[in-house]
Computed example of a mutant assay.
Amino acid sequence: SLPGVLDRDPALAGKATTVGTPMRPAILAAAAVKYTPPEVNGPLRLLVVGGSQGARVMSDIVPPAIEKLAPALWSRLIITQQVREEDMARVRAVYDRLKIDAELAPFFPDLPARLASSQLVISRSGAGTVAELAAIGRPSILVPLPGAIDQDQFANAGVLSQANGALRITQSDFTPERLAAEISAFATEPSRLTAMAEAARSVGRLDAAERLADLVTKVAGI
């Protein structure tokens, strides 16, 4: 589904075809929404997700990072964050104290639409997430899940970071200070976010289902 996966094994790479990840209709609809960068001193829509079960690291790092931003930026932020139930109270307390416009939930059934309306995404880098970010074309800060034997999420994030469509930060470097610095920089450089969105979109494959169907037909000799 992602390019470069088999680069280290030429024998397998020679037998493989990259078709992309087939996208559900909601993602295809979201991909039709043009990216709109934040205006200078205008709202900055931030989406924070962490996979199907959420990611505790996002609850641990993102709120204190937001607190370290210049107070003038707090009023610009519109945050949508996936938060586990057990972390909900402490995350909400921070945003309420800072008077941040934040919507928190353990799960968002309309995530494709929220991806489409976001201007910066902070997320884990599962294969599906990376494929959807690329298909929709949204700039992101990706924090790969550490500890995996084959470091698959690190490699996934690398596909977008190498295309300049995402910033990959290892979890050991994902600190409130680092995240605050990156958000602050992005907030003052809307053109950079636009360029990242376009770069991410260049990696996306909206016709993956058709490519896969064509490949199956070809292999079957139909």
Rank of each mutant, 00 (worst) to 15 (best):
F174Q: 05
A131Q: 06
S191Q: 15
A135S: 07
T175A: 13
G128W: 07
D110R: 04
A113H: 07
V159F: 04
Q153L: 04
Q151L: 14
L98N: 10
L167W: 11
T170H: 13
I141F: 00
D101K: 14
I122V: 09
R168C: 13
A213E: 08
A113G: 13
D150T: 07
G221A: 01
S117Y: 08
P139G: 06
S172L: 13
A213S: 15
G221E: 05
L133M: 10
A187V: 07
L167I: 14
T194D: 13
R124A: 00
S125W: 00
A135G: 04
L206R: 07
Q171E: 15
L142G: 05
V143L: 05
P144L: 10
P144M: 07
S125N: 06
L145S: 11
A131R: 08
R205F: 09
R178V: 15
S184D: 15
A127K: 11
E198P: 11
D173N: 15
A127M: 12
M88S: 05
E103I: 11
R138Y: 00
I100L: 01
A105E: 13
E86N: 11
Y95A: 03
R192W: 10
M88G: 08
D150S: 02
V91D: 07
E132T: 11
Q119L: 04
A213I: 07
A93L: 05
G204Q: 05
G165F: 05
D110P: 03
A134M: 05
T170E: 15
Q119K: 01
A93Q: 14
T129I: 12
L111Q: 06
D96P: 01
F107K: 12
P146R: 10
E189Y: 11
P139L: 08
R201G: 03
I141K: 02
